[in-house]
Each structure stands twice: as C-alpha cells, then as structure tokens.
Design a protein around this nucleic acid. Structure first.
Lengths: 193, 193
DNA sequence: GTCTATAGGTAGATAGAC
DNA sequence: GTCTATCTACCTATAGAC
C-alpha cells in the first residue's frame, strides 16, 4: 500500500544518508534500496523532492526520539556516583541510537536553520535543565553547587564530545572506554566538599 | 605568479567550504572567489581536481595548526583553578580558529578515512596526554588522581562538546558563557579532596 | 597562465503507458 | 502506484586561442 512504500522510502533513505551523507545519495539509489526501480520516478509519487523527504525523515525520527520512555531508575543500594554512572551510560546508549539522525541534522544545518533553532530551544535546553536537576539531587560537591547550570552544561558537553569522537573516529577514540569515561565524569560531579 | 594564485585558490576555497560545505561549492565558484573567470578551467592549472584541492587545503591548514606556538603561561599569583581556566580559555580560542578546518574534516571523513586516523592518532592522543600532565600538575582532587587519563578525556570531551554546540547552533547554545563554562570545568577538575 | 567555448556525465524531475 | 523514457540543469574537466 501507499503508506507502506512511503515509510520504506524513509527507512532506506535513513540508512543511506547515515552511511554516505545526504548530498551523496541520489534519488535513484533511494528508489533501488526501497525496492523500486532505480530511475523510475516512483519516488516522486510520495515526496515532491529530496528536500521534502529529508524534512519528513527528520520529523519522524525526532518524534520517535521525543516519545522515548526514559528507563525507571533503581536506587536500591547505590550511592550518588553509581546512580549517575547508570544515568550517563543510558544517555550514551540513547545518543548512539540517535547517531544516524544526528549526522543528518549536522549535514543539513545550513539548508534548514529553523530546524536547528527548534532543536536548540527544546532538546538542548531541556537537557541542561534535567541534567541540573539530576546532579543537584545527588549531594553534589561545592563546585557543582556554585553554578549548577554550568556544571550541567559541562556534563552534557562531555557526553556529546565523547559520543562524537567515537562516531567520528569510527571507534573508541582512545584507551578510555565508555564505562571508564562515565565513571570519571560521575566521580567529578559527585565527589568533593 | 603561479604559487600566488594557488594559495589564493586555497584561501578562497577554505572560506567557501566552511560556509557552504565542500560538496555544495562548484569549482566555478572557487575560481570566481579567487579572482579567476568562473567557468574558465584556470583552476585546473593548479589542481588536478577538487579532491586534490581539498587534500592540499587540509595539509596546509593542519601544518599551520601544528606549528602554532602555545602561549607561555604566567603563573604569578594564580591558584590551580585560575591557571586551568586560563588554559581552557586559550584552548577554546584555538578551537575557534580551527573551526573552518574542522567542518571540512568532518564532512570529508568518509572520502578520506586515512586522514581521520592520522588525526586521531596524533591530535587526539596528544591532547589527552598533555591534558593529563596539565591537570596532574595542579594538585588535583581524588576523582582525578584515581584515573587521570579518563579525567583528561572528560576535559577534552567537554571542551570539544562545548565548542561544537557553539558552532552548530551558530551562537552560545545556552545561557552559560564560555567564561562560565571554563570556570565550572576547571573547578570540577581542581577542587575536592 | 588565463581566457572562451564546449564536451560529457550525473542527478533531479516530469510525461505518459500500464 | 510503478514502470520506461526523456528533458533539463548543473557541474567537472578538457581543447585550443591568446
């Protein structure tokens, strides 16, 4: 059916865009990957053009990310550092799931600045806010209490920086594993006077 | 003279690539920006093709970055946190200077994986190493002493994450300024038991 | 080395049969 | 809705005069 094909096209495009970049994937390749004849204009029965496909793809994937249910946290028998390590690991897994979408958003930022602003004013600010609440709930050291908002941005920036290094280099960029990284970050944010 | 034009072409390309992305800039636009007639093949007297231009550009800019002389640090009357804040601010300025090159490297990573690996095994690992030495020299808290390598990667990741958010969003992404950010990060890395 | 002119290729998008 | 066929636009790269 029609809607089935439309979603197959989006699925195919998502995989191809993540692997090669939006600009480098011709519509014909998307058609082929979606089970349509390459070079037939079948694609254009579902999207006016490639730009509209990217918009639909980003909308669909952002909505999917927004609807994600955060895992309930199990506080039994854990100290503040352990609780934060658990959260950071979950956040990193979430970032990894979003990897393909993130690459597309980065490469499309010039074509769609309005989307960038939407993302900043929702995802970014919400992350700072929830990070601040989380870290303040964990008996934080003075360096965090002095400026919780800045500490939350340090936490978010470190996570994003670690994730992007992993993605960019195609593997852990150095000898520090995700586990070790999360533990070091959590220790900095929860230990001290 | 010949070499003069070649460098003008690289300069023009660097600016255009940073602004629009490598793939979106036709050779004709580079010619125009370099003071050559658009559509004349004058470009091809200096580079075999666009790929070779990108390679030359990246080589030149990486060498320029490598040859940068780090500013001597003035330790008079400063405590550990202040010293680190100063270093972090200088590092952020350096990242900002490298902005155009970084965008190009990111967008070209699929076309030139060998360059990515060269960058990882030199710039990334050197940054961790020097960051580790720096932070250990500043009477660090236990969280840093426990795993200095991981703490150094937290520092590097936070800096890169902050910088990239600024670049991606086209302005400071949140209410936390670079100054506040550097101060919070330095406090986390130098205060505590 | 730079120009005018152009060949040749690739990708976006449409027309019309089925 | 999907196909075959094709039109158009743009871009890379070359030829040959100056």
């Amino acid at each position: 059916m029609a809607t089935g094909t439309r979603d197959r096209v989006i699925d195919a495009a998502l995989a191809l865009f993540a692997e090669r970049g939006v600009a480098a994937v011709p519509v014909t390749a998307i058609e082929a990957a979606a089970g349509l004849a390459a070079g037939s204009g079948a694609f254009y029965r579902h999207f006016r053009n490639k730009t509209e496909l990217v918009d639909a793809l980003v909308d669909r994937e952002l909505a999917r990310a927004r609807d994600r249910v955060p895992p309930a946290r199990d506080e039994a028998g854990s100290d503040a550092t352990e609780l934060l390590v658990t959260r950071l690991r979950a956040d990193l897994d979430f970032l990894r799931e979003l990897g393909p979408l993130i690459h597309i958003l980065v490469s499309e930022r010039r074509r769609n600045p309005e989307l960038v602003e939407r993302l900043r004013s929702t995802a970014f600010e919400a992350s700072i806010e929830s990070g601040m609440a989380e870290v303040l709930s964990l008996a934080p050291p003075r360096a965090v209490r002095d400026d919780p908002e800045a500490a939350a941005q340090v936490m978010l920036s470190a996570m994003v920086g670690f994730f992007l290094a992993e993605e960019y280099y195609g593997r852990p960029a150095g000898p520090v594993s995700a586990e070790r990284f999360a533990r070091a970050l959590a220790a900095l944010l929860t230990s001290g006077p």
